[in-house]
Each structure stands twice: as C-alpha cells, then as structure tokens.
Design a binder for these strands. Structure first.
Length: 974
RNA sequence: GCGGGCGUGGCGAAAUUGGCAGACGCACUAGACUUAGGAUCUAGCGCCUCACGGCAUGUGGGUUCGAGUCCCUCCGCCCGCACCA
C-alpha cells in the first residue's frame, strides 16, 4: 500500500488535538524549555510557504526537546491589532474585529494542516480585552514609573514625588522659579511628565498624512512609511512616548549576555548608537550666549575653524547679526520646510549661511565664525558642532564649498593630500595643538577632555542615537490608552476599571476637526464625565510582553502568575525574522527590563537564544510586452539567430524565439557588444504571470488569456509562429515544439501582486504535510534566504514513500523480530549521532540528508527489522511527525511517539573492523596500510614507525615524525 | 562612507575542532521494467584526458606535513545603518 498521507495526517492531527498531546504543564518536575515563534499578524492573504519556515524549525526543536524529556512550552497566538484590518474597514465598513477573526480562522486552518505541536490552550489574541487589559495595565505601570539614574533602574513615580517634597526642589516655570509645594496641580503634572517612562510631550514626530498617524522611527524607512510606503514628514505634535532612551546603556550592555546573531546585535548597537566624547561650551563674542557642542574628537579642538548650528537651533535667531538676519532667517525657513525625505535625497548638496556672529575658542581665545548649515541635525547631540575641516569629511566639504580655512592638527602616518580630502581616522600624532602636541590621537582625546573639565568649559559626555519611541497612534484598531483628562491634566485610569474597552464608532476615520477615530465614540466618558485619551497604542504594544502571557495565558487576576513566571523564566529559543531587529526586539527587551525593575517579573531579557530564519522568496514568471504595441508578447527575448543580430527597434514585433534561456540570450547579446538589459528596458515591459499557468518555463497561453481579460487580444510570438485568439499560426519553417511560449524567471519577494505565491495548502494537498516540513528544512540553512523551487520537492516526497516501504512489503505491513546485523546497527547509530548533532546546532537541512542516507542504506539491506525501524520512527518524528506516529502505532505502541525517549548512539556500532590507512608523505598519498582502528593514536604511530612495509616503500628511510588523525590518515615526515 | 555576512558543480547545498572537497537532493544522460507513466530500479554526472594522470572551493600571496576552513592583498555579491559630529 502506498503511503496515504491524507487520511493519516488528518487522523493524527485530530488525535493530538483531542488528547492535548502538546499541552505544557505549569508545575512539572521536568526541566522546562520554552520555544517561541514570533506570532503572526493575520493578514487577509493567508500563509504562503515562506511563513511556516520558522514555525517548522521551532516545531522540530520542540518535539526533539520533548523526546529528550523536557517540559516544553511551545505556544502560538495572534498579533491581531494592526493597520491592514483598519484600512480594510475604512474601505468596506466591516469591523476590523470581524476581518481579524476571519483571517485568524484561515491562518489556524492552514497551521493545523502542517501538524504543529502548539499548545493551543494557551492561544492569545492581542485584540481581546482579556489580553489588552494587561497591556493597558503595563502601560499604567510605566506611566507611574520613572527612571532613577542613581540606582539605574525604574522606580515608582511616588518615590520621586517624595524626593521633591523632602528637598522641596526648585523648578523653572516659564521665567519664574518655584519650589515643589508652590506648584499648581497642572504644573506638578507637567514636571512629572519629564520623568515618567510613558509620557505625554510636545515633540517633533514622524507624521504620515496618508495613514493619518504618527510613526515610530523604526516604522519609517528611507523617509517613507514602512507600511504602504507613504511620505512621512516632521511635525510638532503632542504625543505619548516611551522613555526607551533611559535604557540605552542597559539595552546595549545586556546584549553581551544573550545568544543572538552578531548581525542582529550589531543592528541594535547601531540603532542605539552610543558615542563617547565631550561636551564643550563656546561663548559667543560680545554676548551672553554660549554654544554647547558635542564632539567625539576633542583632540582636534585646535583645528576648529568655524562652528555650525542646525537651522532649528534656538540660538540662531538670538545671535545672528543685524546685517545677516534676513539672509539667515530665509535660509532657516527654507531648511525647516524641507521634509526629511528631501533632505535625505540630496545629501550631497551643500548649503549654509554665515550668521555674522563669532564664537571664542576656549583655548586660544581666537574668534571663529558661526554658520548655520542643514548638514547639522537638530535631533542629535546638541544640534551644534565645532567644525574641524581637516579631520572631518562633512566639515571638509562645507569648508571647501564656502572657502573656509582647514588647519591640520593630526599628522597621518602616510602621505596625505589635504587638498583632496580630510583625514578622519583616529590615528597619528597631534600637531599644532599647544599642550596636545606629539600625543597619539587616543591619548590626546583623554588629555583634552581632562583639560576641558579642569578649566570648566565642558565635560565628558556620552550620546546615544536612540530616540524615545512615539507610542500614540491616531488610529482606531489598537489598544485604547488608559488615560483620562481632568481639567486638561492627563491622569491614570484606576486599575480596577481596566480594561478600557475599545468603543464602537460610526466610521474608522478621523473626525472633521482632525481628532482620532476614537473621538467619534458616543457617550464614551470615564466615570461618565471625563474625556478619554483618544489615541491608541502602536502595533508593538501587545507584542512587547506576549511571551509572558503564554506562561499563564488564562489568568484573569494577573498578567501572569508569579509561580508560572518563576518556572518558565524566559524564552530559551526564539525564532523569527530579522526585520524586527530595531522594532519589536528592542521594545520587548525594554519592557522586560522595566517590568523587572518594578519587581513584576524575574528576568531581564526576554529570550536567551534567538534565530532569524531566512526569507523564502518567490520565483516569478515573466513575459515581455512590446512597448507601444500593447497586445504583442515575446516569450523569451532573443536576438541572435543565424548569426544575425536582430534589433529591438521597429521590427521588434517580429523577433523570433530560438532559446529558452534568458541568460544565454543575454550573453549572446553582450558578446556582440550590446547592452541587453538596456535594450529590453527600452523596448519591453515585463509582466508577471501566475506561476500556476507555467510549467517548466512554458506558459499555458489560453489559460493566461482567459485569466487576464486585459490581454485577451494579445499576440504571442514564438519560435515557429504566433498565438492569436488561442490558435497557433505556423511559420513556413515551423518545426515540432516551436509553438511553445517560454517565460523567464526572476527571484522576488513572494507576494500576491507578483503572482508568485506558493500556497502551503496546495503542497500539502499534493505531497502531504510531512513532505512540506522536510522540504522546507531541506532547502538550505535555516538562516539563509532562498527562493522556493517546487521542483525539488520530489526528493523529499520519494524519501517519505521509501521510508513507508521499508515497513510495508507487498502492500502489507511487515516487520521482523530478527536480530539486526552489524551493518544495520551501524547505519542506525550513525543516524542517531548525526541527527542529534544536527538538531543541537540547528542544522536541520543536513538532518534531512542524513535520514535519506540511512533509509537508502536500509533499503539496500532490505532491512525491515523492528529493532531498527522502531528507533527510526522516533528519530524522524520531529521532522515528519504524522508518518512517525502511524508507524509507531503499527509497531504496536499504545501511546504517541511523543512519549518515547530520544535515543543515544553507541560508539561500538560505529567502529570499523579494519581500515586501510592512506600513508602519505608531505601530504601526498603514497600507499595504504592496514591498521586496526581500535589502536590508539600512539599505537598507530609506533606501528607505522616500525613498519617494514613503510621502510621498504621509502627506501629504508626511518620516518622522523608521524602525524595521525584517528580513522582518517597517517602522514609521514621524512 | 561605517558596520555585519558571504563567495564551493548546471542548481539548492554538505564538509562540526585545519585531515579523502562536492555528502544528500534537484536537473540531466543512458539502460531495465512497462497495454507509455509526474511510478520504481540500475549506472553515470566538477573540469581537462581514449587512458594513466593532472587541475579544481572568487583573485594573488602566506602559515602548515596537510588549508574550502587560519592570516594578509585585491575582486565580486548580499544585508543593516547612514550628513549621528
């Protein structure tokens, strides 16, 4: 009987669900292991084959750990709040909750078919009040906390209030100075806002008009929104933010202790952007003002030839001389109006203007001109720089453009042409710099700061690039922020009143006055009288603590019980995409640390080990449409035929096809000195066709025509003629097979709009879930991105059927109780060893190969012995759980294979009886010598040294040295 | 520009601490079986050579008895950050 995966997979999936085979226990004597996947946002498109890659890997590891005797927590849930459901709601009026529910049902159905070992009793949904109650609760905890720089941890805001009370601290309110007890309630609230971890403030934010909301820095890429790619502008707005900057140093330092990939850690380090240097004050000549700058190169202070302020810098209008005022203000206005995107687009354009003011050099007393320039960013450091053109490329470009002096203060070790470029490296000796002369740069930096501190015009300073995270969103589909306003003062909602349920609204759009959608809610008042905050939380709120909720997902009294958290601690293995490096993965670390500081959880990091699975790309099928002739297609472009080069101009309509191979055609063109790609671009538009209409690069023309109405009149030019209205018209020279219309392939992101989506359901329907699981692993290393190629799946499909046939002879399940032979045992134990090692180092692709090797060997040996097949079922079960369960049952086991024990290999089965060692001299193999492998290294050495055979071969020479690699090779040095 | 990673057959790839390079799979070729097939089995499959043998892990060099692996040079690709002072 052939392996009937359809019935068998269904049978075991319902068995697992009924018996709750994978439910984790919260109080178990077993050692715990927590395997977490980044939970998905359930989009309308459903899962494609790329999505389950990480889930399959984590599932294999979870199943392996269970067999190893661990109590494994392997949960799944839904990151259910988000923009797409809301955009859909705006278009159709369907409530996002319904859209989300439907999408989840679809995701769940697809996931179930793959046979994951998730503990569905712990399923969570961030958009359910039972869940977001605790998201809101955590928000309140952060709102009611501040970061105490002295203790370097978050503490209750009450501790700060009592500090203010006892010290009766003074505060600057407008121009007046008041002590704490003199402050009004509003003023107190404003003061405390400066300290709270979740706070409301007026600040420049990324405003996306198309989405109608603000975005955090990580949600903006290249000046446009990550979702949708809409332009983003800078706007000053009152906004809720999270004080993640307080944790910059800890977020950076604690990276040391976690097992995450180097590139990911580096991305986070980069994003945090720590730089050490010095803050220095420059007084303005003839005025009360000082410019404060930040520099990492205080050693170059004697090379300062001018200063630059950012256009937004508050001193600009104060210090500008009357003669320059008009020009400067005009420049400032222009610069402010340019969006970030415009500024980024022409980084190379140098602009700036002299203010007419002069600063005084703190060491030399010389006057140095103060400029305004938009190459200085308002948002970093102090928004002002001391310019050292000789040793900073940006200052150099500016100075060159405006003809400012470029005094050199560091001597490069090699010849350096300062008329061409600046010398930015932190190497060499300092020159022309008074007390710093002759010092190496590194020492000069220290000395300079010491001197600056001693003389009192600056101090050692550390700067971070990390900004606080904007937390409010002017959108509907998110957690309401649990804040109300009393006399304009934002106040925390009483914990007892949580959750604040997301209210119903008539439309999912802003109000006429531009208020967020929540302002539309009718009779939505706290205690029937106070206005609620109307912005909602961002997408990353719910995901910043979800790993904790899984530990105790159904707890109604707490976000998670203490006992549960003390048992599960943190995630042992976290698998997910690297695109979350500077978003989710930074926020979840931040919240974890804050919750730890407040004594709410026992760990400082969410995940000990993290693996970024690669992306699975799609392979798009492309055809080429002649420009200006919108109904004529050319399958594969080709120009070289009969030694002639066809041109892509007027006659393009008549191009023939003589090659299946785009790359070959390209080569042909290029060898004739033509730029193939440019010609294609000039004359053709590429169009993606649905991959289901293509088989082995051949397009099914009639199916394509009926599926895409806009092309129904098109002509398809092939090698031996052309297709029109579904009929093929032959050329005179037509030969067999020349009526095929070929496509060319390109690797792209898998997406609906590119018609290249491969659906896991289809693969499962055709080959089964186990086959899909094995194939996804077999494709290549987990962390690598790779294109999906359905052709190769026959390999894993064959493997599964071969495995089945080992147990089933002549349509009959047959195993023998005979003792296994040494060869069979060796094959098995080799597999145990390799698969164990492979799983431990997450090299799942090589495991699949090793299974294939073993099954091939056993097939050759015609082995159907229970003593071999039973362990084999255990070994393969993490990868192909359905077939393993079925075989396990056929082998007369009452319980699921999940309760079996992982096997240990025995070295004795792996050794050889004898082994002919290659004997080589200076690395070249010269002869083979039969030696027993049981011998130790030393014994082999002795044996070789005294061997008559060796002596004879090397003309009586006695080897000087023998290098032995057990089981491998013997090398002789004469 | 800065940072991280990578470069092995026609393709996906393997080689765990320096030790028989290309396992395993795809594709391809030939054959067997066959009322013909997207089934199964056998053999072949880096390059040059009829062969013996030689040459091969982006390039050039180094360390070593021995290098895909370690060190240096250059070339190429991918990812992240980017006027961050």
């Amino acid at each position: 009987m052939e392996y009937n995966f359809r019935d068998i997979e269904k049978k075991w999936q319902s068995y697992w669900a009924e018996k709750k085979t994978f439910a984790a226990e919260n109080n178990s004597a077993k050692e715990k292991y927590y395997v977490l996947d980044m939970f998905p946002y359930p989009s309308g498109a459903g899962l494609h084959v790329g999505h389950p890659l990480g889930y399959i890997a984590s599932d294999i590891y979870s199943r392996y750990k269970r067999l190893k005797g661990f109590n494994v927590l392997h949960p799944m849930g839904w990151d259910a709040f988000g923009l797409p459901a809301e955009q859909y709601a705006i278009q159709t009026g369907q409530h996002p909750a319904i859209t989300t529910k439907n999408n989840i049902a679809r995701y769940r159905e697809q996931m179930d078919k793959i046979g994951f070992s998730f503990d569905w009793d712990r399923e969570i949904n961030t958009s359910f009040p039972e869940y977001y109650k605790w998201t809101q609760w955590i928000f309140l905890k952060l709102f009611n906390s501040r970061y105490n720089a002295k203790t370097a941890k978050a503490e209750s805001i009450e501790s700060l209030i009592s500090e203010f009370k006892i010290l009766n601290s003074k505060f600057k309110i407008g121009t007046a100075e008041k002590s704490w007890s003199e402050l009004s309630e509003k003023e107190k609230s404003d003061v405390l806002m400066e300290y709270r971890l979740a706070y409301l403030s007026e600040a420049y934010v990324n405003w996306c008009p198309a989405l109608g909301t603000v975005l955090a820095n990580d949600e903006v890429k290249d000046g446009v929104s990550e979702r949708g790619g809409y332009p983003v502008e800078r706007k000053k707005m009152k906004q809720w933010s999270m004080r993640i900057t307080a944790y910059a140093e800890r977020l950076l330092n604690d990276l040391e202790g976690i097992d995450w990939s180097d590139s990911l850690k580096e991305q986070q380090r980069n994003w945090i952007g720590k730089s050490e240097g010095s803050e220095i004050q420059f007084t303005i000549h003839d005025s009360q003002f000082t410019i404060q700058i930040f520099t990492t190169r205080p050693d170059t202070i004697f090379g300062v030839s001018y200063m630059t302020l950012a256009p937004e810098h508050e001193l600009v209008e104060k210090i500008v001389s009357d003669a320059h005022r008009d020009e400067v203000m005009k420049y400032v206005t222009e610069a402010k109006n340019r969006s970030d995107r415009e500024r980024m687009a022409d980084v190379k354009r140098i602009s700036g203007v002299f203010t007419g003011a002069y600063a005084v050099h703190p060491f030399t007393g010389k006057q140095i001109p103060v400029w305004v320039g938009d190459y200085v960013l308002a948002g970093y450091g102090t928004g002002a720089v001391m310019a050292v053109p000789a040793h900073d490329s940006r200052d150099y470009a500016f100075a060159k453009h405006f003809n400012l002096p470029k005094p050199q203060v560091v001597q490069p070790k090699t010849d350096w042409d300062f008329s061409k470029e600046s010398f930015d490296e932190k190497e060499g000796a300092v020159i022309n710099s008074d007390f710093l002369n002759e010092l190496q740069v590194k020492d000069a930096i220290k000395k300079a700061i010491d001197e600056i501190e001693k003389r009192g015009f600056g101090k050692r300073q550390i700067n971070y690039r990390l900004r606080d995270a904007v937390f409010g969103r002017q959108r509907y589909w998110g957690e309401p922020i649990p804040i109300y306003f009393e006399n304009g003062i934002p106040k925390a909602i009483d914990e007892k009143d949580l959750p604040i349920i997301l209210p119903e609204v008539d439309k999912y759009l802003p109000t006429e006055d531009g208020e967020p959608p929540l302002a539309r809610a009718k009779n939505w008042k706290y205690k029937n009288k106070f206005d609620f905050e109307t912005t909602t939380m961002p997408g990353w709120a719910g995901s910043s603590w979800y790993f904790l909720r899984y530990m105790d997902a159904n707890n109604e009294k707490e976000f998670a019980g203490k006992d549960a958290m003390n048992y599960w601690k943190n995630v042992d293995l976290y698998i997910g995409g690297s695109e979350h490096a500077t978003g989710h993965l930074l926020y979840v670390r931040f919240w974890t640390k804050a919750l730890y500081d407040l004594g709410l959880i026992p760990v400082i990091e969410p995940a000990k080990k993290l693996i970024n699975q690669g992306m699975i790309q799609g392979v798009s099928e492309k055809i080429y449409l002649k420009k200006g002739q919108s109904n004529s297609f050319s399958g594969v472009l080709t120009g070289v035929q009969d030694g002639l080069i066809y041109n892509f101009g007027e006659d393009a309509y008549h191009i023939f096809l003589n090659s299946k191979n785009y790359d070959q055609t390209k080569k042909d063109f290029e060898s004739s000195g033509l730029d193939f790609e440019a010609l294609v671009e000039q004359n053709f538009v590429s169009i993606n066709v649905d991959i289901s209409l293509v088989e082995k690069s051949e397009l099914n023309v009639s199916k394509f025509l009926s599926s895409r109405k806009e092309f129904s009149q098109s002509v398809f030019i092939c090698e031996g003629g052309y297709w029109i209205n579904g009929t093929f018209i032959k050329n005179q020279s037509f030969q067999d097979g020349q009526d095929k219309f070929f496509t060319s392939q390109e690797v792209e992101k898998m997406s609906k709009s590119k018609y290249n989506v491969v659906n896991p359901d289809d693969i499962i329907e055709k080959h089964g879930a186990d086959c899909l699981r094995l194939y996804e692993m077999f494709l290549g290393p987990l962390e690598l991105s790779k294109p999906w190629n359905t052709n190769g799946i026959s390999g894993t499909s064959n493997f599964i059927r071969k495995l089945w046939r080992l147990f089933n002879k002549e349509f009959q399940f047959t195993v023998s109780d005979e003792e296994p032979t040494k060869k069979e045992l060796k094959s098995l134990h080799k597999l145990i060893k390799k698969v164990t090692e492979d799983i431990e180092r997450f090299s799942f692709n090589t495991s699949v190969s090793n299974f294939m090797i073993c099954v091939n060997e056993l097939t050759d040996l015609k082995c159907n012995k229970r003593a071999i097949l039973e362990p084999l079922a255990i070994l393969v079960s993490p990868y192909a759980p359905h077939i393993a369960e079925e075989l396990w049952q056929l082998l007369d086991h009452k319980e699921s294979v999940t309760f079996a024990k992982w096997l240990d290999y025995k070295e004795e089965f792996l050794t050889e009886d004898s082994f002919a060692y290659p004997i080589s001299i200076n690395g070249k193999t010269k002869m083979n010598l039969d030696l027993s492998l049981a011998l130790s290294k030393e014994e082999i050495e002795k044996e070789v040294m005294s061997s008559e055979e060796v002596k004879k071969y090397f003309y009586g020479q006695q080897p000087k040295k023998v290098i032995v690699v057990p089981g491998r090779i013997v090398n002789i040095v004469l």
